[in-house]
């Protein structure tokens, strides 16, 4: 506790990023340190440690100390530790979980394991202080395209997920085919603005009626075949048109299903999350669809959409408040179902 507020230290290391954050009363961010975005000079005064992607063991103590320092608190003030315990890469997850357990044991602090997806959804609570369940959540990222019905903070149901390539992956792959470089999503977004999204009709796969699942590998293949055929025929490609048309075929399906889910479950709020939430077309389509259907639309700022620990801290806070707490035998789970809990 500090200044009468309940402090949660969140730790995230499920894939690329090593991150730590301190939040007050769940939603107020006191610090949000992410390994790839750290301003190392100011924090470490000159000596630049090697901070690279997935160097979790090297980064973990630095991000934790950074989070405590920036929040102006010490470990003694921390009331709860939240850590992503799955799903993700085992070699990455275990660094965060091991460090979190050590802190919990040493400081005699309760610890809560958080599902990475639950973290993404919770980013919206930070971004919109007035947002409360129930609502429909859509998480769109490199590895996920999920629609979740959020009944309550700890009562969530996965309505649909990607059956093959996630939206972000498909974007990255098409970006590569078009020679746009990595990361592909933002590049496709930028290039698409110069193109005509109706120039080419890439098929949309909506799957069976009533399904909230997604399948983008068909579209991906369609675009690749189109590009290959045109190249073989010696035709010049209009990359901007391809990017725009491809992007539309993906984002349109996501927006449609998201709104359909909100309507079916009677939700008047729809929250977007995940790295692809930054996509301008997706945001525009969702805003339009929500407005047309009387649904309130929420979307956090970019830094909360990509992997970070503030969202984990927030999710942990609400889990703890509802009485969920884990023991010192908490384990990392590379495969972790998104159960209702």
């Amino acid at each position: 506790m500090k200044d009468g507020k309940f402090l949660t230290l969140g730790i995230e290391s499920s894939c690329d990023e090593t991150a730590a954050s301190v939040t007050a009363d769940g939603r107020q961010v006191l610090s949000n340190i992410i390994s790839s975005q750290i301003d190392i000079h100011t924090l470490f005064g000159g000596v630049v440690p090697e901070i690279a992607s997935r160097k979790h063991l090297e980064n973990i103590d630095k991000v934790i100390n950074g989070a405590l320092e920036e929040a102006g608190v010490s470990l003694d003030d921390i009331d709860l530790i939240g850590v992503t315990h799955g799903p993700g890469l085992i070699g990455a997850l275990l660094v965060g979980v091991a460090a979190a357990k050590a802190l919990a044991f040493a400081g005699d602090i309760p610890i809560v394991g958080v599902h990475h997806l639950h973290g993404h959804i919770s980013a919206n609570y930070i971004a919109a202080p007035d947002l409360e369940p129930p609502f429909t959540a859509v998480v769109v990222s490199g590895g996920n395209t999920d629609i979740v019905d959020v009944r309550d903070y700890n009562d969530l149901e996965l309505l649909g997920a990607s059956r093959d390539d996630a939206a972000g992956e498909a974007m990255d792959k098409i970006a590569r085919v078009l020679g746009l470089g990595y990361p592909g999503g933002p590049k496709i977004d930028a290039l698409a603005k110069q193109g005509n999204m109706h120039a080419i009709d890439f098929k949309r796969v909506t799957l069976e009626k009533g399904s909230y699942d997604f399948s983008f590998s068909g579209v991906k293949t369609h675009v690749i075949n189109y590009v290959n055929t045109e190249r073989q025929a010696g035709n010049e490609l209009n990359n901007a048109d391809i990017a725009a048309s491809f992007q539309l075929s993906i984002m349109e399906v996501i927006a449609e299903k998201a709104v359909a889910a909100a309507k079916e479950y009677g939700r008047d709020k729809l929250a977007l999350a995940g790295g692809v939430a930054a996509n301008s077309l997706l945001r525009r389509l969702m805003e339009e669809a929500c407005r047309a259907n009387g649904i309130e639309f929420y979307r956090p700022e970019p830094v909360l959409c990509t992997d970070n620990a503030a969202m984990i801290s927030c999710a942990a806070y609400y889990k703890f408040k509802a009485g969920h707490v884990d023991g010192l035998d908490l384990d990392a789970k590379p495969v972790l179902d998104f159960d209702r809990f």
Binding site: C15, P87, G88, L89, S141, G142, G143, S162, R163, D164, D165, A166, G168, E169, D172, K173, S217, P334, V335
Partner: peptide, 9 residues
């Protein structure tokens, strides 16, 4: 599902 982002599943 594609493990491109997760690297291994």
């Amino acid at each position: 599902i594609s493990p491109t982002f997760n690297i291994v599943k």
